[in-house]
Write a protein that binds this DNA or RNA. Structure first.
Length: 858
DNA sequence: ATATTACCTG
DNA sequence: CAGGTAATAT
C-alpha cells in the first residue's frame, strides 16, 4: 500500500472525491424562481422527517430488513412528493445505494452484518438514510438555491459508476421524468435532495474507498437491477464520481454501464471515466441570495405598511384628542388669538415641549410655524392634516396657551417648557370658560396627547430608522449613511446556525470558552443542514428587513431558532461581524462579542446612534444574524453609483423589484467592503485611528459600512478613493477570503461588485474566480479531513461529533479565511461540518477504513 | 468561443 | 496560490 503508486492513487482518489462537487450549475436556476416557494414547502416537508429525525426515520427504516424496499420507502417518504419521478424511476436513490454499500462494507469489515441488522441495523439503515438526506439537504439545497442539483450522486459503490450516463441531459431530459409527473418542483426538490446526498455520498465514498469497503458484486446486482430503471436519473449523480473508483470499479461494473438506463444508453467506459473525473459545475446560490433579498424586501415593505397603518391609527387618535382639545380650547381661543403675537419667543418653548417628538424636531421651525398658522385657521380641517400638522398644531396650542399664560403671569415662565403648557392649560381652564372640570379634562387630554404623539413618533422613527435609518442620516454621518452595523453582530449569536462554509472562529469567550461544540444531535440541532438558505435568510433578515415573517412564514419561525432543515449549498455567512462597533474589533481578537446586541459602543458617533441600534430589536423579531448590513441602503446607494446620496427616503424608494442581484451584491458588497476593503481606504478615521486597527485595518471598513454609503465605500474605499487598481492586492485576497464566508460561488458580477476598486478584466476576474476555487478546495479538503478524523477516532454516532472552536477544522478554516478574525464565527458554523461528519459516521459504522487508507488523514 | 469549474501539480 | 488541463454550460 505504501507504494508510491498506490499512495498516489489514493491521494488522488481522495482528492477527486471532494464533496463540493455535487453541485451542478444549471438549469435549475431558471426554474427556480417560480418554484421556489413550492420548493421550499416541499423541501420543508421533506425535511421535516429528516429533522425529526434522525430518529423518526430510523423507526421507519426498521422494519425492513431488506434494505432496498424499505429504503426506498423511506426515501420516498423523505422525498415525498419532491422526487416523485425519480423514485419511480429509481427505486434506489443515491441514499439507498449508499446505505447498501455501507452495509456491505460493514459486512465485510465486521463480518456479519450483525452490526447493522437488528434494531441497530435498522437504526443504522434508517439513520443512514436520514443522515444522508439530512446531509444532502443541509449541504445543498437551500430552498432557494437548491434547485440545482444536480449533483451527482455518486453512487457509492462501483455500482454507482454505471449508470450514469452522462448526465448531460438534465433531469429534465430524462425519459423517466417524462413518464412520470414532472413538476418542476418535484424535480427541483429531487435534485436538491440528490445533491445533498451526493455530497455526503461522495465523502462517504471517499472514505470507503478502501478495498475493504467496496461493495460486493452482489450489491451491484441488486442495485443494478433497480438502477436499470433509474439509469438516467442517476446520471446526474454520477457525475461527481471520482475517478479513483473508476479504475477499479469500471471493471466491476461494466455491466452496469451497459445498463439501459439513460438515454443515450450506455456510455462508453471512457466516457464514464471522464465523467467521474470532472464534476459539473455548480450552480449557485446566488439565486437564493437574490430571492432572499427580494423576499426580504417584500417583508419589509409589508412592515412598512403596517407601520404606516399604525401611524395612521395613531394619528386618528391624535386627531380625536385634538378635536376634544380644541373644543375646549376654542372657547378660549378668541381671547388668545390676540396674544399669539409673540411667536418667536415661544418657539424655544415649543421645542422643549416637543422634546420627545423627534419627528417634530426635525421639522424646521418655519414649517412648524406655517403649520401652526394653518392649524389655527382651520381647526376643522384637522382630519385632513397630516400627523405632522397635528403635532404642530398641538404644539401651537400649547404654545399659545403658554403665551397667554405668560402674559398673564409675565414672561417668567417663558422658558419652562411643558410645564408651562400644563400650567397654562390649567390656568386657562380655570380662568377661561372651563370650570374645574374643564381643567381636568384639559390635563387629561394633554397627557393623552403627549402619549399618543410620542408613540406615533416612536413608531415612525423606529420603522424608518430601522429599515432605512433615515433618522441616522439626519444626524449623523453625512458622508455615509450608517448601515446597520452593529445589529449584525448581535444577531449573530442568536441566529440559527448559519453554517457556512467556514466555521472559522476564534475561540472566543463568547461561547463560554468551552467548546461549544455544536452538537447537532438530532434533537438539539435542527437538522443538520449546513448551509441553509434559511439561515441565510436569517442572516439577511436583519439586514434586509425587519419584516414580519409572514412571507417566509415558516422560515422565519425557523430562523428564529427553530430548527429547520435547510441547507444551503452555498456558503453562508457563518461569521458574524465581531462587533457592531466600528472597526475596532477587527483587530482585537478580544472582542467582546457579547451575544446580545453588543454594540460596542463605538463612539457615540452618529453611526451607532444612527444605525439604529435601537431598532434592532424592533426590527428583527427573531434573532438576527450575522450580518447586519442593511440592504436597503446599500442598494439605494449602490444604484446611484458611488456618490448616490442615500437619502433618508431611500427606504421608501427602494423598489424591491428593481434589483435582485443588485441587492445581493450590494449587500455582499457592503459587507465585504466593510471587511476587506476595509483598510484600504478608510475615510473615517474618526474613531480610532486606523493605525490602531491593526494591520488588517479592516476595522475601518466597518465603519464605513456603518456609515452608510456602502457603495461609496466599496468604490472609494481603496485608497481614499478613487484609485482603481489594476491588480489584486493582498488586501483583495483578504477580502475575497472573507467574502468566501458568504459566498462560495460568487458570480463574476458579484465579484465585480465587491471589488469595485479593481479594474476588472479577464485576468482579474479569472484570478478572483481562481481564488475562490482554491478556497473551495481548501475548504472541502478540511471538511473531509475532519470527517475522516472523526471516523478514525471512532466516532460512531453522529451525536458524538462535536466541533468546537478548538477543533482543527475550526482552526484551520478560521486560520485560512479569517486570520485577522475579522469575523466572529458562530458556533453554528461548525455545524455544517459536524453534520456532514455525523452523517458520514452514521452511515458508516465506525472505522470502516484503516487509517492507512485515509489520504492525509490527520 | 467563452466562461467557469473541478482536479492536479508545483 | 498559481498554472494547467479537461469537462461542461451557455
Amino acid at each position: 500500500m505504501p507504494d508510491h503508486d498506490s499512495t498516489t492513487l489514493l491521494t488522488r482518489q481522495n482528492k477527486r472525491r471532494r464533496v463540493d462537487i455535487g453541485v451542478k450549475r444549471t438549469v435549475g436556476s431558471v426554474i427556480f424562481p417560480r418554484t421556489q416557494e413550492t420548493l421550499l414547502d416541499a423541501m420543508n416537508q421533506s425535511h421535516g422527517p429528516d429533522q425529526d429525525g434522525n430518529c423518526s426515520l430510523v423507526s421507519l427504516g426498521h422494519g425492513a430488513t431488506n434494505g432496498d424496499g424499505e429504503k426506498s420507502n423511506v426515501l420516498r417518504k423523505l422525498l415525498k412528493r419532491a422526487n416523485s419521478y425519480e423514485d419511480a424511476m429509481m427505486p434506489f436513490p443515491g441514499a439507498t445505494i449508499i446505505s447498501q454499500l455501507l452495509k456491505n462494507n460493514m459486512g465485510k469489515n465486521g463480518g456479519s452484518d450483525s452490526g447493522f441488522q437488528g434494531s441497530g441495523a435498522l437504526s443504522s439503515g434508517g439513520s443512514e438514510i436520514q443522515a444522508e438526506d439530512a446531509c444532502s439537504n443541509s449541504s445543498r439545497d437551500s430552498p432557494s438555491d437548491c434547485l440545482s442539483p444536480g449533483p451527482p450522486l455518486p453512487p457509492p459503490s462501483s455500482s454507482s459508476n454505471f449508470g450514469r450516463p452522462p448526465p448531460p441531459p438534465n433531469h429534465m431530459s430524462h425519459s423517466s421524468s417524462q413518464s412520470l409527473s414532472t413538476f418542476d418542483l418535484e424535480r427541483l426538490s429531487d435534485e436538491h435532495l440528490r445533491a445533498k446526498r451526493a455530497r455526503v455520498e461522495n465523502i462517504i465514498r471517499g472514505m470507503s474507498h478502501s478495498p475493504l469497503v467496496r461493495p460486493n458484486s452482489s450489491d451491484h446486482n441488486q442495485e443494478g437491477n433497480r438502477e436499470n430503471e433509474n439509469g438516467t436519473s442517476n446520471s446526474n449523480n454520477h457525475r461527481v464520481e471520482d475517478g479513483s473508483h473508476n479504475s477499479s470499479r469500471r471493471g466491476d461494473c461494466p455491466s452496469l454501464l451497459s445498463s439501459p438506463g439513460s438515454r443515450g444508453g450506455v456510455v462508453g467506459i471512457g466516457e464514464v471515466y471522464r465523467e467521474n473525473k470532472r464534476k459539473q459545475r455548480l450552480p449557485q446560490q446566488q439565486h437564493s441570495f437574490t430571492q432572499l433579498v427580494c423576499s426580504r424586501q417584500e417583508q419589509r415593505q409589508e412592515e412598512r405598511r403596517q407601520l404606516k397603518l399604525q401611524l395612521e391609527d395613531m394619528q386618528k387618535q391624535l386627531r380625536q384628542l385634538q378635536e376634544k382639545f380644541y373644543q375646549i380650547y376654542d372657547s378660549e381661543t378668541e381671547e388668545e388669538e390676540e396674544n399669539i403675537v409673540n411667536g418667536e419667543a415661544n418657539r424655544g418653548r415649543d421645542r422643549e415641549e416637543d422634546g420627545n417628538l423627534s419627528e417634530d424636531s426635525i421639522r424646521s421651525d418655519g414649517l412648524e410655524e406655517s403649520h401652526r398658522d394653518r392649524g389655527r385657521h382651520n381647526h376643522d380641517d384637522l382630519s385632513e392634516l397630516d400627523p405632522g400638522l397635528f403635532l404642530d398644531r398641538a404644539r401651537a396650542l400649547l404654545r399659545e396657551q403658554a403665551l397667554i399664560d405668560g402674559e398673564m403671569e409675565e414672561d417668567a415662565d417663558s422658558r419652562e417648557g411643558e410645564r408651562n403648557g400644563e400650567m397654562v392649560i390649567k390656568r386657562r381652564a380655570v380662568a377661561g370658560s372651563g370650570g374645574g372640570g374643564g381643567r381636568q379634562l384639559a390635563e387629561t387630554l394633554k397627557q393623552e396627547l403627549n402619549c399618543a404623539v410620542s408613540q406615533v413618533v416612536d413608531t415612525v422613527v423606529k420603522g424608518f430608522s430601522s429599515p432605512k435609518q433615515t433618522a441616522s442620516h439626519h444626524h449623523g454621518c453625512h458622508s455615509s449613511t450608517p448601515a446597520v452595523p452593529s445589529s449584525s453582530s448581535n444577531s449573530s449569536s442568536s441566529c440559527p446556525p448559519p453554517f457556512g462554509p467556514l466555521p472559522p472562529l476564534t475561540p472566543d469567550s463568547r461561547f463560554g470558552g468551552g467548546n461549544l461544540a455544536l452538537c447537532l444531535n438530532s434533537e438539539g440541532s435542527p437538522t443538520p443542514n449546513y448551509h441553509s438558505s434559511n439561515q441565510r435568510l436569517h442572516c439577511f433578515g436583519d439586514v434586509i428587513i425587519p419584516s414580519p415573517l409572514d412571507s417566509f412564514g415558516g422560515l422565519s419561525s425557523r430562523l428564529s431558532g427553530v430548527p429547520t432543515p435547510n441547507d444551503q449549498t452555498e456558503a453562508l455567512p457563518l461569521v458574524v461581524r465581531k462587533s457592531g462597533g466600528s472597526g475596532v474589533e477587527t483587530t482585537n481578537p478580544s472582542l467582546p462579542p457579547p451575544p446580545p446586541p453588543h454594540h460596542p459602543s463605538l463612539h457615540p458617533s452618529p453611526l451607532t446612534a444612527s444605525l439604529g441600534f435601537s431598532p434592532p430589536s424592533f426590527r428583527h423579531p427573531f434573532p438576527l444574524p450575522l450580518m447586519g448590513y442593511p440592504f436597503q441602503n446599500p442598494l439605494a446607494s449602490h444604484g446611484g453609483g458611488g456618490g448616490y446620496p442615500p437619502g433618508p427616503k431611500d427606504h421608501s424608494r427602494v423598489s424591491p423589484d428593481s434589483m435582485d442581484i443588485t441587492r445581493e451584491t450590494v449587500s455582499l458588497r457592503t459587507k465585504m467592503t466593510s471587511l476587506g476593503g476595509g483598510h484600504m481606504g478608510h475615510h473615517h478615521h474618526r474613531q480610532n485611528s486606523p493605525s490602531q486597527h491593526g494591520p488588517e485595518g479592516l476595522s475601518l471598513s466597518l465603519i464605513k459600512s456603518e456609515c452608510g454609503d456602502l457603495q461609496d465605500m466599496a468604490d472609494i474605499s481603496p485608497y481614499s478613493g478613487s484609485t482603481i487598481q489594476e491588480g489584486l492586492s493582498p488586501n483583495h485576497l483578504k477580502k475575497a477570503k472573507l467574502m468566501f464566508f458568504y459566498t462560495r460561488y460568487p458570480s463574476s458580477n458579484m465579484l465585480k461588485m465587491f471589488f469595485s476598486d479593481v479594474k476588472f478584466n479577464r485576468c482579474i476576474t479569472s484570478q478572483l474566480i481562481k481564488w475562490f476555487s482554491n478556497f473551495r478546495e481548501f475548504y472541502y479538503i478540511q471538511m473531509e479531513k475532519f470527517a475522516r478524523q472523526a471516523i478514525n477516532e471512532g466516532v460512531t454516532a453522529a451525536e458524538d461529533l462535536t466541533v468546537s472552536r478548538d477543533a482543527e477544522l475550526f482552526r484551520a478554516l478560521n486560520m485560512h479565511y479569517n486570520k485577522a478574525n475579522d469575523f466572529e464565527a458562530k458556533e453554528d458554523a461548525a455545524r455544517g461540518a459536524v453534520v456532514l461528519v455525523k452523517a458520514i459516521c452514521r452511515s458508516h459504522p465506525p472505522p470502516l477504513l484503516p487509517s492507512q487508507y485515509w489520504s492525509k488523514g490527520t
